[in-house]
Simulated scan of single mutants.
Amino acid sequence: MTRRSIPARIGHFVRESLLNLLALGGIVCIILVILAFTFNISLIMFKTGSMNPTIPQGSLAVVREVPANTVEVGDIVTVDRGRGRLPITHRVIGIEPGPDGTTHISMQGDANAQPDPAIYRVTEVRTVLVSYPRLAYVIVRLSDPLVMAGITLFAALLVGWAFWPRRMEAEAEEVRAEADLTS
């Protein structure tokens, strides 16, 4: 039985630690996807500053889809505005039940002097659970094809390094140890 050299033991420890950390990260990602699907949770990015200072431009928000009749005045919600138009996220300033099962919501951005001109007739909205300033800029940057290619290449090299056969190194070390014993 031969003992590994100190650099070999350190390399083994680093390799195993990285694999365990990556496995844990994978498990966390799987759990988050399951929770997001189960609880109708998604992410939205803020391109404008209409909700300043509460939610600054460039923020990333976690939102949950809920029935519109559960919303209260003061809630920050995202509503869809129809085909070809981006959703809008503002604070609710008025709610009225509609005759056709919809809820009529009046909204206004915190940074806007006037309420939105439209009354939104909706059955479901997305309520903002939490927002993270400037994180949208990070997501946009990471979405760049060159950055994605770099991350993919790095991950492939890391996996290749972690799973590279170590038998030849161990055999060479064993031969050296036997040579030391015979001399």
Score class of each variant (00 low, 15 high):
V63C: 04
V63D: 04
A61W: 03
N69Y: 13
V62H: 02
S59R: 00
A68Q: 05
M45K: 09
I44G: 03
V71H: 05
S42N: 12
L60K: 02
T78L: 09
V79I: 08
D80A: 04
T70R: 13
I55S: 00
V73R: 14
E65I: 12
F37W: 15
T48Q: 10
N40E: 15
F46C: 01
A36V: 07
R64P: 02
V77L: 06
V62I: 13
N69I: 03
F39Y: 14
F37R: 15
P53I: 01
F39R: 10
E65H: 13
G49S: 00
M51K: 01
G58N: 02
F37P: 10
G58P: 05
V62D: 05
V79P: 00
V77A: 00
T70N: 10
V77C: 02
V73F: 11
G74P: 07
T78A: 01
M45D: 05
I76G: 05
S59C: 02
K47P: 13
I76A: 00
A61F: 06
T54F: 08
A68N: 01
I55Y: 01
G74M: 02
E72P: 10
G49Y: 04
P53A: 04
V71D: 02
N52D: 13
D75M: 06
L43G: 11
S50G: 02
D80I: 08
E65F: 12
S59F: 02
M45A: 04
V63R: 01
P67T: 03
M45T: 08
F39P: 09
E65P: 10
V79T: 05
P53N: 07
A68R: 00
M51Y: 09
V63F: 00
T78Q: 10
S59H: 00
Q57Y: 06
V33R: 14
T54C: 10
E65S: 14
N40R: 15
D75E: 10
G74Q: 08
T48S: 15
F39I: 10
N52A: 09
T48A: 07
S42Y: 13
R64V: 09
S50L: 03
I44D: 09
S50P: 07
T70F: 05
F37L: 14
A36M: 09
V71F: 04
N69P: 09
D75V: 06
M51F: 09
